[in-house]
């Protein structure tokens, strides 16, 4: 079998497993737990995406909820508008819904990426922490824009054209299929020359430049890809519920994402996956505490800084850790 044939087989096998797991989850879990499982998958996409810029490249974005919002609104709006056309061609079945949904997710990712490019291109030319300041502002500006965009429902939120709200396209299968694709793509990128160059920028930008690394271009690339992942996650998030509101994408959401990657270990993809799942679960467990959860988060972060500043994984990855354990 050729390399590509083997890869296709692995991909189909993986999708089959995800499909089976999704089937089992929907059959056995109550709806409340299912929702947490979906959120965990979405968080994995968010965390792995954010980790590329914050962890691997070392340029801190603290407004990623803004890109998630752009993706969510773009995907929801596009999905609603394209649906009649797709239905007229493919009918009403699962196939048509799958096509609409995946197109919508791609559109969400592309719009978020464009927003990332717009924000990143000017601010990443500079060395230092300018990105943090700019992204913080961006996150707020985007939220306020959506708050006032009447064609997107303004502060009430966007519910599509149907009285029942946005279609509930988001299933276990699609969430985890996309999560797997994002993890594989970002891992492959991280463990390549591009990824090494991004790491070099994080470690010492002056030295990276002296080694002919096109630092600005690579930083913008990482940031744009990271925004794209947040956009896809936003699209998945949007189709989990009847509608999306600007309030869903507040500053706290950006902080949640940062918590995910710090808990797991900045710069580790395995860590980001773990952190994404962890935050989905703890957010639900702490739901009754309302805003006190921010206090708890702060305490959690402080304890991590004191006890294990590098996070659970440090910059290591699960496969290399397992190999080390086997060797011993």
């Amino acid at each position: 079998m050729t390399v590509w044939g083997r890869r296709a087989a692995i991909a189909i096998g993986a999708l089959g497993v995800i499909y089976g797991l999704g089937f089992a989850a929907e059959a056995t879990l109550i709806e409340y737990v299912q929702r947490i499982v979906l959120l965990a998958g979405i968080n994995v996409i968010l965390a792995v995406g954010l980790n590329l810029i914050n962890g691997t490249t070392g340029q801190f974005s603290i407004g990623h909820a803004g890109f998630m919002a752009v993706g969510a609104y773009a995907a929801a709006f596009f999905g609603v508008k394209i649906a009649p056309l797709v239905h007229s061609v493919l009918g009403e079945g699962a196939l048509a819904n799958g096509v609409i949904f995946n197109l919508a997710l791609v559109v969400g990712g592309v719009f978020a990426a464009l927003a990332g490019l717009l924000v990143g291109a000017p601010s990443l030319r500079l060395k230092g922490d300018y990105l943090a300041v700019v992204t913080l502002g961006f996150g707020e500006i985007i939220r306020i824009l959506f708050n006032n965009a009447t064609f997107l429902g303004a502060a009430t939120g966007y519910f599509g054209d149907d009285p029942t709200g946005l279609p509930a396209y988001t299933t276990f299968f699609w969430v985890y299929a996309w999560a797997l694709a994002v993890v594989v793509a970002f891992a492959n990128l991280t463990f390549s020359q591009t990824g090494r160059s991004l790491g070099a920028i994080r470690e010492d930008e002056v030295a990276a430049e002296a080694m002919a690394t096109p630092t600005t271009r690579l930083k913008v690339l990482a940031f744009t890809l990271s925004a794209a992942a947040a956009g896809v996650a936003g699209g998945l998030f949007a189709h989990m519920q009847a509608g999306i509101r600007p309030e869903d994408f507040r500053f706290e959401k950006s902080i949640d994402m940062i918590v995910m990657i710090i808990i797991g270990g900045l710069g580790s993809i395995s860590g980001a996956v773990l952190g994404g799942i962890f935050v989905a679960v703890t957010l639900e467990v702490m739901r009754d505490l309302q805003e006190y959860r921010l206090v708890l988060y702060a305490l959690l972060l402080i304890s991590i800084m004191l006890l294990r500043p590098q996070g659970v994984f440090g910059t290591r990855e699960l496969p290399s850790l397992l190999r080390r354990m086997v060797k011993r």
């Binding site: 790491g199 030295a207 990276a208 910059t315």
Partner: peptide, 27 residues
């Protein structure tokens, strides 16, 4: 000014831009 958390080999590889033609999609 080494890339301290990266391995010795990775440090050297970073500077290999002239050997590197593959883009992001290739990776």
């Amino acid at each position: 000014r080494l890339f301290r958390t990266m391995t010795v080999e990775e440090n050297v590889m970073v500077a290999g831009h002239h050997l590197h033609r593959a883009g992001v999609l290739s990776a």
